[in-house]
Design a binder for these strands. Sequence first.
DNA 1: ATTTGACAACCAAGCGCTTGCTTGTTTTTA
DNA 2: TAAAAACAAGCAAGCGCTTGGTTGTCAAAT
Lengths: 196, 196
Amino acid sequence: MNRQALEDVGISPAKARIVAKAVDLFYEKGFERTTVRDIAAATGILSGSLFHHFKNKQEILYTAMAMTTRGMGERAEAAVAGISDPVEQLKALIICELSSIHREDGHAAYVLVDEWRSLDEASREKVLALRDGSYEKCWMDALDGCAEKGLLKSPPKIARQLIRGALAWTRNWYRTDGDLTLAGLADEVTNSFLKI
Amino acid sequence: MNRQALEDVGISPAKARIVAKAVDLFYEKGFERTTVRDIAAATGILSGSLFHHFKNKQEILYTAMAMTTRGMGERAEAAVAGISDPVEQLKALIICELSSIHREDGHAAYVLVDEWRSLDEASREKVLALRDGSYEKCWMDALDGCAEKGLLKSPPKIARQLIRGALAWTRNWYRTDGDLTLAGLADEVTNSFLKI
DNA sequence: ATTTGACAACCAAGCGCTTGCTTGTTTTTA
DNA sequence: TAAAAACAAGCAAGCGCTTGGTTGTCAAAT
C-alpha cells in the first residue's frame, strides 16, 4: 500500500512508521512481551507520545493487522488477475502467500496468524471480514475451480485449511537462503494437494 | 504418563496438578496473559505457594512442555509398535498427532507448538532434544520408509514439516463434534502427501 | 511582510495498578 | 516430630496510560 492509499484509510505516515517498528517487535517477542516503551524507543519517541496516535496499545496491533490484511488482499488479487486456469491461480496464490511470509518485511504476515488472541472480539471480526472479502475470496474461487475440474484431492474448504497450515508453519523451518527455492517449495505444496 | 513415571522424572502429584491447570489457562489466554495468581486460584492455593514447587513461572511452562513431549513420545512409540508397513506407520502417527491436539485434555499439545517464545534458550533446547529423541524419530523412520518405497511425494524432511503445519493448524478450525471425523481428517492428510 | 492563532507532534513526569516473587509463620501430612 | 505444603503479607519493578506543557509548521488576518 502506498502512502496515499494508507492516508485514505486513516493511517498517517507517522502511524505507519510506528506500526512498522511495532510489527518487528511483535514478531520477535510477541505482543504481550512487547512494551509500549519498546515500541516508542524503536520509533525514536517517548512512550507517552504513542498515545497521541493510537488510543491504546491494542489499537497498534489492530492497525498492523488491518494494514497487512489489506495489503495481502491486494497482492492476491493482483496475483490471479488475468489467469483463468484455476490450477495456475492456485499456484500463484501459494507463491503469493509464501512470499508474504518470507519477504524481508514479511513479519507482518506472521503477526497476522499468531497474535489473534491479543485482539478483542470486535477488532477480530473486523479483520476477519476484511480478509474474507478479498484474500480468502481469491483462494476459494481458485480452489472451487480446481474442484470442479476434479483436480483437488480434498474438499475445497478442507484443502484451504490444510494448505494454510502447511504454509504458515514454513516460518518455523524454511529459510530463503537455503537450498530449497521459494518456487520449489511452492511446487511441493501444489503437488501435494492436487491430483497430478 | 502415570503417577510413578512422573515421580521418576521429578514431578510430584502436586506439581502435576498445578501444571494441568496451568496448561488449561495457557491454552485459553497464552502464557504471558496468564498470571501466577490465575494458576494458583485454579489449583486452589495462594500464589506464593506455587514457588514452593517451582522456582519461577517459566519453570511451570517448561515442566508442561517436557511432560507433554514425553507423553507424546510414548504414545507415538506405542502407535507404531508392531506395525512394519511404513505407510501404516505414517497413518498411525497422523492419527496420533491429531488425537493429541484434539482430545479432551489435549490442551497440552497446543502449548507445545504455540509457546516456544516464552521459553528461555536452554529449556527450549532440552525440550527439543527430548522430542527429537523419541517423537520425531518415530516420524522420520516412517517417512524414510515411505520414501524408500517411492510412495512419498516430497523429501521426508519437507514432508514432515508440511504435515506438521497442516496438523497443528487444525486446532484453529477443526471441531471433533462436526461432520468430519478425526479418522476422516487423517485420511485427507495421508492422501495428500502419499502417491496413491 | 509580519503577526496571529490553530494544530499536530512530541516531551517530561509520574500515577495507579499488576506483575512475579520473597519472607516468615502456621498448618497438614506421614 | 520432622518434613512438606500452604498461608499471610507485602516488596520492588515494570506495566499501560494520563496529564500539562513545549515546539515547529502553516495558513489566515493584519
